[in-house]
């Protein structure tokens, strides 16, 4: 049984979070989100002209996300630069996580580009990326119903925990890793992925944990956004 966490945190405790808004000067909106050793940077450009033209939709704008790990971001091995199967998938699910809060009908025929760069990774990079991206979208002055907060929850050797590190993900025992993105005001789930196995009760409890954790992340996001103008 995994009773004591490797970094000494409580089971429902998040790593230290740092967030800042407006760090990429030439972007319309940008944000940095750091959770523990994981650092994500997001920059938003748009709404801007969409090419190729056949992608244009006169009823609503397009959201285009691009997730990328910097070559030096891994823990040891150099990450091969460029698009990979993994980064393509994460870009796609990030789009799905952010699109429900964006009021894209306000921006017909245009595109909103989101670039997420992972500077340093210690698990939970897609969640950190989503948190950063949602702040950057707000900073870009886009119409949004809500922000999006995301966190990874899971079970390590029978123990339910929040915000796994890389060390915990690779723990020698049965591990379930669930990435969840939530719109914090209404509690709707916009991203849900899982590695490993979990039974019904564990899953239900994990959702509760994720909701609690996302509330905490939301507070940090709100504070970071407001700090830009104080």
């Amino acid at each position: 049984m995994y009773n004591k966490r490797l970094d000494g945190r409580k089971a429902d405790e998040l790593r230290t979070i740092k967030a800042r808004v407006g760090i990429v000067k030439r972007a319309d909106g940008s944000a940095m989100f750091q959770i523990g050793k994981t650092i994500a940077l997001a920059a938003v450009y748009g709404p801007r002209q969409l090419h190729p033209k056949f992608l244009q939709n006169p009823k609503m704008g397009l959201l285009r996300c691009n997730y990328n790990m910097m070559s030096f971001s891994g823990s040891g091995e150099r990450v091969r630069p460029g698009t990979s199967r993994r980064s393509k998938e994460i870009s796609y699910v990030t789009e799905g996580a952010l699109a429900p809060v964006l009021d894209l009908e306000e921006y017909p025929n245009t595109v909103v580009d989101v670039f997420i760069e992972i500077l340093q990774s210690d698990s939970g990079t897609r969640c950190a990326g989503i948190c950063a991206a949602s702040m950057a979208l707000a900073d870009a002055g886009l119409k949004m119903k809500d922000l999006v907060s995301a966190v990874a929850v899971g079970r390590i050797d029978g123990k339910l925990v929040v915000d796994l590190t890389k060390e915990e993900e690779d723990y020698d025992g049965e591990v379930a890793d669930i990435a969840i993105a939530i719109t914090p005001r209404t509690g709707e789930i916009t991203l849900l992925q899982m590695d490993g196995f979990a039974n019904k009760e564990e899953l239900a409890k994990s959702f509760e944990n994720a909701k609690e954790a996302c509330k905490k992340i939301w507070e940090v996001q709100k504070k970071a956004l407001k700090e830009k103008y104080t």
Binding site: D28, G29, G46, P47, R48, D103, A138, D139, A140, G141, L142, K143, M144, K145, D146, R185, L225, Y229
Partner: peptide, 24 residues
């Protein structure tokens, strides 16, 4: 009533507005 934009609140009578601080 929920804000749909990052900005500051402007109240005129019964109308509640949020005026953006950034954006195109």
């Amino acid at each position: 009533l929920v804000s749909s934009q990052f900005g500051f609140v402007n109240i005129s009578g019964r109308l509640v507005k949020v005026i953006p601080l950034s954006g195109r």
